[in-house]
């Protein structure tokens, strides 16, 4: 099958078949990064612009490496150096970039829906590298790729996602993607960090205790907690958060043997995850990062219309 979308704005918009296609291509792309010459000419002559309105090291670097391994020309624009600081609107920024004839824009933006806004107004492809609390599809895909590598399938997997669901675009993309692929998702967090109707986001169970979600899980995905949330209305202290929703070796034992421990990064060691778990034998956190490059190569490849990879 061919990938028919101009843009990738979120996993909610994709079918299970499309997600599978992206993951299959990513599996193939991963091999390229292991070669001595880590480059194929697939996107030669294409221009990929990374437009980042929020600071990011991991995602931006990963997209840049992915584009370069496909031989695209890349350039990075970050909000701190852009005209946005001077009050330019997103549409003006987008049109100015369009005038320079790019092929793909990879954007991160702090406002949910900013990518929908952009994609409706420009002719080039838009890839969402994170919008507000909405979606982060490349993260969802790389998480699913990592799980699929270990278990061979996503069908029937029990995945616990723990932490601040309300403000998490990583959680939403994983929920949309995983439930479409047949996984069972349990969410855990204090009710102040679980958004209304979360149980209707897919085949999802909501738990108030972390232990309920983790019990018998194949995968535990910890979310980053924003340290600014403590002491306001949502949480009393990080100390208490960590006691109830931090992942320790004792909690890991409640899951299935061989459970995968994941984290999208950057981690708050000692808050949502203890160092022994983060660095322990169940942790696949660095494999997630490795797969991130492959998934992003796949996304860039498919929005460019596919074609031969060699």
């Amino acid at each position: 099958m061919a990938f028919k979308h101009k843009d990738i704005l979120g996993l909610q918009d994709l079918t299970a078949e499309e997600i599978e296609l992206l993951l299959n291509t990513a599996d193939n792309m991963k091999e390229i990064s292991k070669r001595e010459v880590k480059k194929v000419p697939t996107l030669r002559g294409k221009t990929v612009v990374n437009l980042f309105f929020e600071p990011s090291t991991r995602t931006r670097t990963s997209f840049e490496i992915a584009a370069k391994r496909l031989s695209a020309d890349t350039l990075n624009i970050s909000a701190s150096t852009s005209a946005v600081q001077k009050g330019e609107t997103l549409s003006d920024t987008a049109w100015n970039i369009e005038a320079m004839k790019p092929d793909i824009i990879v954007m991160r933006h702090g406002i949910s829906g900013a990518h929908h806004y952009l994609a409706q107004r420009v002719s080039y492809s838009v890839i969402n590298a994170g919008d507000g609390a909405h979606e982060h599809p490349s993260q969802g895909l790389l998480d699913m790729m990592t799980m699929r590598e270990k278990f061979g399938t996503l069908q029937g997997l029990k995945v616990a996602i723990v932490g601040d669901i309300t403000h998490s675009r990583v959680a939403r993309s994983n929920i949309y993607g995983l439930t479409k692929m047949g996984a069972n998702v349990s969410l855990a967090g204090p009710p102040t960090l679980i958004p209304p109707g979360a149980e209707r986001l897919g085949n999802v169970t909501v738990c108030n205790r972390m232990q309920e979600a983790v019990e018998g899980a194949d995968v535990i995905m910890m979310l980053r907690i924003q340290l600014e949330r403590q002491g306001k209305t949502l949480l009393p202290t990080m100390r208490e958060y960590s006691r109830y929703f931090g992942l320790s070796a004792d909690v890991v034992k409640m899951a299935k043997p061989g459970v995968l421990v994941m984290h999208p990064g950057p981690m708050n060691r000692g808050v949502e995850i203890s160092s022994d778990v983060a660095d322990g034998e169940n942790s696949v956190i660095l494999e997630q990062v490795e797969n991130g490059v492959a998934v992003r190569m796949s996304m860039l490849y498919h929005v460019s219309g596919g074609g031969p990879t060699e």
């Binding site: 829906g113 507000g132 609390a133 909405h134 979606e135 309300t166 209304p196 109707g197 979360a198």
Partner: peptide, 13 residues
Amino acid sequence: NDGFTATELGLKG
């Protein structure tokens, strides 16, 4: 409005 649609869209309700 706060509710499921806001949750899906990632907007504050």
